[in-house]
Design a protein around this nucleic acid. Structure first.
Length: 953
RNA sequence: GCCCCCGUAGCCCAAUCGGCAGAGGCAGGCGACUUAAAAUCGCUCAAGUGCGGGUUCGAGUCCCGUCGGGGGCACCA
């Protein structure tokens, strides 16, 4: 620092001192503790009659790399909002915990050779430090951590709730498993093989019940990633068939794994999106992921066999155009229908050169199994397949159609079989062309349609009649209904709905996760542990690293690290029938588990008896509370949830599912966890590469204006600029720590909020941060004398223009805060502050409200200035200024007079002027008359008091 | 290939219902302070809204087409 700088200038050093002081005071006084109406923290007097609001950021993962300036964007935004809401009189629940189990934490620990708990806790400590210096107004008592046994005890408890529940489709909700037994007894729910409940053995009964649990163990095809050493959920596999984390190849393997019956909730998860205030893009992604489509299931009898093939189609109307069928190569019926020799009329291309159908099928299956999912998908349009030698009978037309297998039909969707209608389906068309199969149009294409392709549009039905039905001339919708009615009458099909959503694979072969509260007896039967045995603590083990394999080693076996902890695995327990030996479940839960319900624990983190006190949940998240007041069909939930859009179908879908189960079982009143979701944009950054393509430190690059062009150099040598994410490898990381050191946290906060709309991505530009600092310096100088440190404000009433500007600013800034338009709020505050700067002396009556308005954005300097203005208390609970509506209108307004839409004159008129008076004035305008010239006035549009447009010719 | 979002001064961004294109910031220019520089302060310059049509008295705003950028989905029957 220069010696000539005034002693009381608001610079980084002074800002730092102020910030630390206020952070300590806030913490010591518990300024941001939100009172609860009930439960262990009940403070009903403090809750009072205030309206509540719950504001929340997405659960952060404490990364080893620390934060860069992009990470706190959302946290600062929610903090500004929370501080504004407190000033506006609401009871604000705002906190931040840590999602600390899971793969990244474990991988970081393995890399550094340390225990995951140690690295995770260090990383959390570092992140807490980084965030504390930003002055976030979190209720620090509520900062829960998923790895805390007191927390994961409840994660395990919720697992047991889900395990001990079944979905009753007739009631449309989950019910306790005990009620399933009654339903079996009464026959309301049929047993697996239809026998009476009383006739089943104990074992059969247990299997029947287990078959309905919402958390169940199944032996089914799962995504095994040898390179990662664990199985992963469908949602964690990319379109290229690789793991989202680590980008390892994934193989479908039949393995015994825990699943969550999320598919039972498919309809509610789609339908309830309509009740949520979420970005449309996220809703769309969830709808796409769940992938509900309605159509028909149709049975085609296999010619000369007792078997029939069920297909799913969304276009039952086109059934007369089904000229062949295709099964997935893995379809279980294939072996049963393949004849020993090629039938009469088999075309050469259909056989792929095989001597008989069995050889052809075997060869094709082998070829398919060798292709990875990646190949199957990137080869895209090229259709391959082979004739099975079997024919099926179209149930409507009676036509015999050949049955193929082909890998463009997926076993995992619908029934794994399709009726192929080349004329109306591009995929079937491509296959028909490749194998010389016929097509028959059943929808009349438009005149512009290219005859050499499928027609997927709408039009009248054609070629679709027999002695029992005629669809010809009908539109597609009616035709669908008619066909379904016919199929249902015949018993050959029915209207049905299928989903793309699969059940959620819930177990991982990992150490760093929540253990399952499940043990197996000597017969291998799973038993749930009673609540009294929770938490099942994660044991200390010598080797916590996962067993990984060559990424392509598809035949390898997953191995849980916990299975090596034999002292922990082998236990003797009394589960009600005396002490017995059991083996613990050695898989752990995925890291999504802890984040599926954390918002609920924020509400009542000290409660030892229940996961959340019902009255507390009802108050903070219940339907009709807070922003849900007066909203039709309000589902309840967090009032504002801010985070990135990358969790569109993972966390946000899983959390909704768990919440709905808890709702059905009566544990929460809200139907959804997050009423309103807001996706903040990304802070991106420029990166620079030298002539060899290596990144150079972005902070050291110099910019040159070279005539029209801008060029960049590093150490005198030219470099090229690119735009993207901030990251170590691109050498363009800027950290909040640096910003706090160089400018102070308040400057950093104001800059981040002023960069642009919150939902937009924007480029980081360190040199522009000074603009925010200049604003705060000017604000400071309008209250404090830089030389003496004394207050400068005067008690004179502000002049009328300043006063009007103040009230307009109050009005505008309040609305901007309410709508998360922080960038425009900053601009309005700067404008008012600049206006005060131009006055001879800053009036207290303006600076007081201005400081209050700036407080959500720059809370530390605001508190300091608030003190300087003579207040002894923190301003946290000080009511936000209210605009006087009378001061929002000006004495006179400028009315523009247009002629043919072009501005020709400006008039000063009273704001309340009538349209008729204004028109008279405008018609008298000399400038307007001059513009009209010889023309005739045809029409005059008057928008009093701002505009008159004279239409002349 | 399909769907969604965004294109406004050199840059980041404003602009209720369609009604004077500019609120704010950065950079640039000029000036003040300074022995000088930085910091600070004051003043100032700057686009007709990617492009082409249309609707309208009037379009940044609505509609159609097109180009560019970003995101999502992608054999889902």
């Amino acid at each position: 620092m220069s010696e000539t700088e005034p002693q009381h200038r608001y610079n980084a050093v002074l800002a730092g001192q102020i910030e630390r002081r206020w952070q300590d005071r806030w913490q010591e006084s518990g300024a941001f503790h939100a009172p609860n109406p009930a439960g262990p923290w009940a403070e009903p007097d403090k809750v009072g009659r205030r309206k509540k609001i719950m504001i929340q950021d997405m659960f952060p993962y404490p990364s080893g790399a620390g934060l860069h300036v992009g990470h706190p964007l959302g946290y600062i935004a929610t903090d500004v909002f929370a501080r504004y809401q407190r000033a506006a009189g609401r009871n604000v629940l705002y906190t931040l915990g840590y999602d600390a189990f899971g793969l990244p934490a474990e991988q970081y620990a393995v890399q550094t050779g340390q225990h995951p708990r140690k690295t995770t806790e260090e990383n959390m400590g570092n992140m807490r430090r980084q965030l504390r210096q930003l002055g976030l107004s979190h209720d620090d008592r509520r900062s829960i951590v998923t790895i805390d046994p007191n927390y994961y005890r409840w994660t395990q408890w919720i697992f047991l709730q889900i395990y001990n529940a079944w979905y009753d489709p007739s009631a449309g909700r989950a019910r306790p498993i005990g009620e399933l037994v009654s339903a079996f007894e009464s026959g309301a729910v049929p047993t697996p093989d239809g026998r009476a409940w009383a006739d089943l053995s104990d074992e059969e009964r247990r299997a029947a019940v287990d078959g309905h649990r919402l958390a169940y163990k199944s032996q089914s095809p799962v995504n095994w990633a040898p390179g990662l050493g664990t199985v992963v959920a469908n949602e964690e596999v990319t379109a290229e068939g690789r793991t989202e984390r680590g980008n390892f190849p994934v193989f479908k393997r039949n393995l015994p794994q825990w699943m969550m019956r999320i598919t039972a909730y498919a309809d509610r998860l789609i339908d309830d999106l309509d009740r949520l205030d979420w970005p449309e893009s996220i809703k769309l992604q969830q709808r796409n992921w769940i992938g509900r489509s309605s159509g028909a299931a149709v049975r085609f009898a296999v010619d000369g066999s007792d078997h029939s093939i069920e297909v799913f189609t969304t276009r039952p109307d086109t059934i007369f155009g089904a000229t062949f069928m295709v099964l997935a190569p893995e379809h279980p019926l294939v072996d049963a229908i393949v004849p020993s020799a090629w039938p009469e009329g088999t075309q050469g291309a259909w056989t792929e050169g095989a001597a008989d159908p069995q050889a052809a099928v075997a060869a094709y299956r082998l070829a398919t199994s060798r292709r990875s999912d990646l190949d199957r998908q990137t080869d895209g349009k090229v259709k391959t397949g082979v004739f099975t030698g079997a024919y099926a009978v179209n149930p409507v037309s009676g036509e015999r159609v050949p049955v193929f297998i082909a890998d463009y039909v997926l076993m995992g969707y619908g029934t794994g079989a399709v009726m192929s209608v080349p004329a109306e389906d591009p995929r079937d068309w491509a296959f028909a062309k490749a194998y010389d199969l016929p097509y028959r149009r059943t929808v009349q294409p438009g005149p512009d349609h290219d005859e050499d392709s499928a027609f997927t549009g709408t039009g009248p039905m054609i070629n679709s009649s027999n002695e029992r039905i005629s669809l010809d001339g009908k539109d597609v919708g009616d035709a669908k209904a008619d066909v379904i009615a016919l199929l249902e009458a015949d018993g050959t099909g029915r209207g049905t709905i299928t989903y793309r959503l699969r059940d959620w694979l819930f177990s991982r072969q990992r150490y760093w996760g929540e253990p399952f509260p499940i043990v197996y007896d000597e017969d291998g039967v799973a038993h749930a542990l009673p609540d009294s045995m929770l938490p099942v603590k994660l044991p200390e083990v010598a080797d916590y690293s996962p067993k990984t394999y060559e990424p392509e080693d598809a035949d390898s076996q997953p191995e849980s690290p916990l299975s090596r902890a034999s002292e922990w695995v082998e236990v003797e327990l009394d589960l009600g029938d005396g002490p017995k030996k059991y083996r613990r479940e050695t898989n752990t839960m995925p890291n999504w588990a802890g984040s599926c319900w954390y918002e609920l624990r924020y509400l009542d983190p000290a409660n030892e008896d229940v996961l959340v006190d019902p009255a507390v949940e009802e108050y903070w998240m219940g339907p009709g509370q807070g922003d849900g007041e007066g909203v039709v069909a309000d589902p309840g939930g967090v009032d504002l949830y801010v985070g990135g859009s990358e969790h569109a179908v993972l966390h946000l879908l899983y959390a909704r599912f768990w919440h709905k189960v808890l709702h059905d079982l009566g544990h929460v009143s809200s139907d959804e966890p997050f009423r309103r979701l807001f996706n903040q944009g990304m802070v991106q950054a420029f990166a620079f590469r030298d002539s060899r393509g290596y990144p150079v430190p972005a902070a050291e690059v110099e910019e040159h204006l070279d005539g029209e062009r801008t060029t960049y150099t590093w150490q005198g040598k030219p470099v090229t600029r690119e735009y993207g994410k901030m990251g170590k490898s691109l050498k363009n990381v800027v950290t909040p720590d640096q910003m706090c050191d160089e400018y102070g946290a308040d400057t950093f906060r104001v800059y981040e909020m002023s960069m642009g709309p919150l939902d937009q991505s924007r480029p980081w530009e360190t040199r522009a941060v000074v603009g925010a600092q200049r604003f705060l310096q000017r604000l400071w100088r309008n209250v404090v004398d830089e030389e003496t440190g004394a207050a400068r404000v005067v008690d004179d009433e502000p002049d009328s223009a300043t006063n009007r500007l103040l009230h307009k600013t109050i009005d505008g800034v309040s609305r901007d805060y309410e709508n998360l338009h922080f960038n425009t709020a900053v601009a309005k505050l700067i404008e008012l502050n600049n206006a005060v700067t131009k006055l001879d002396a800053p009036p207290r009556a303006v600076m007081g409200p201005l400081v209050q308005m700036a407080a959500p954005l720059a809370p530390h300097i605001a508190e300091e200035l608030w003190s300087a203005l003579g207040h002894s208390q923190t301003m946290t609970d000080e009511p936000f200024p209210v605009a006087d509506p009378q001061l929002l209108v000006d004495d006179t307004v400028t009315c523009v007079v247009q002629v043919m839409g072009k501005v020709r004159d400006r008039l000063q008129v009273p704001p309340g002027i009538s349209a008729a008076d204004l028109e008279v004035l405008a018609r008298e305008s000399e400038k307007a008359l001059a513009a009209i010239g010889d023309g005739q006035i045809r029409k005059v549009i008057v928008r009093a008091p701002k505009l008159v447009n004279i239409v002349a010719s």
